[in-house]
């Protein structure tokens, strides 16, 4: 861990990897809630956490290396489910990168448990980690000038959902009707750092019809319930 001074009142704490950054972020939130850390912004990112608006940056910088930071729990009790139609225009490209069939992309993606590592790019845009490393994909060589709202997309180790239409270079694998950002809602952002997420297939591939309600998301399929889990898990 390395804490770099940023201007007059901020510190950028650099960690070995994203998992360590997420664990430090959780500890920082605990300390702020307990009143032992006074800071305006706690901004996690790929492998750093920025503390902006610190009362005493030098004291925090000196004390940080001595903190005990518990590792993140493996599995969370509360998991947010986001219904997805795996119908993105880049599914075939992603399947080729992964060396699997197109339906397999959906199965692999829906089987993973994700965590919002950090937010950025746009209000409510979360960078979700959780896919095994071998499933990293590059950004598209040519970004799209407009990616539709609700697009579920991959880039590098991350999954993201576009909160509104915007230009973007991520690989689009699906779409959701979930409202990622609504500034009139409390909280405005569906995804904030630390939230656990699963993507739940909205419908099954045509050759595997699911009864007479193909557009209903499956209701809360726990990993241990074989009857409801998508085939191939």
């Amino acid at each position: 861990m390395r804490a770099l001074p940023v201007g007059e009142g901020a510190l950028l704490v650099e960690l070995a990897d994203g998992t360590e950054a997420q664990a430090l972020h959780a500890e920082l939130l605990r300390r702020r809630a307990a009143g032992t850390l006074r800071v305006r912004e706690i901004v996690p990112a790929a492998r750093t956490v920025l503390l902006d608006g610190l009362d005493e940056p030098d004291r925090v910088r000196a004390e940080l290396p001595g903190w005990e930071i518990p590792p993140l729990p493996e599995r969370a009790e509360a998991v947010l489910e986001i219904p997805v139609r795996y119908d993105g225009p880049d599914l075939a490209d992603v399947a080729a990168h992964w060396g699997v069939s197109v339906p397999e992309v959906a199965r692999i993606h829906a089987a993973a448990e994700f965590r919002v590592a950090f937010c950025g790019f746009a209000p409510g845009f979360g960078y979700l980690t959780g896919l095994p490393e071998r499933y990293e994909v590059p950004r598209r060589a040519t970004p799209r000038t407009s990616v539709p709202e609700g697009s579920v997309a991959l880039a590098g180790p991350y999954t993201g959902v576009y909160p509104r239409a915007s230009p973007g270079g991520w690989q689009l694998i699906g779409s959701t009707d979930a409202v990622l950002w609504d500034h009139a809602r409390v909280p405005a952002a569906l995804l904030s750092p630390g939230v656990r997420v699963r993507f739940v297939p909205h419908e099954f591939p045509p050759h595997e019809p699911l009864g007479d309600a193909p557009f209903e998301p499956p209701v809360d399929p726990p990993p241990a319930s074989p009857g409801r889990a998508p085939e191939g898990r």
């Binding site: 912004e41 608006g53 937010c119 746009a122």
Partner: peptide, 9 residues
Amino acid sequence: RPGHAHLGV
């Protein structure tokens, strides 16, 4: 609107 940077705001 400071205080929302962690949400990308």
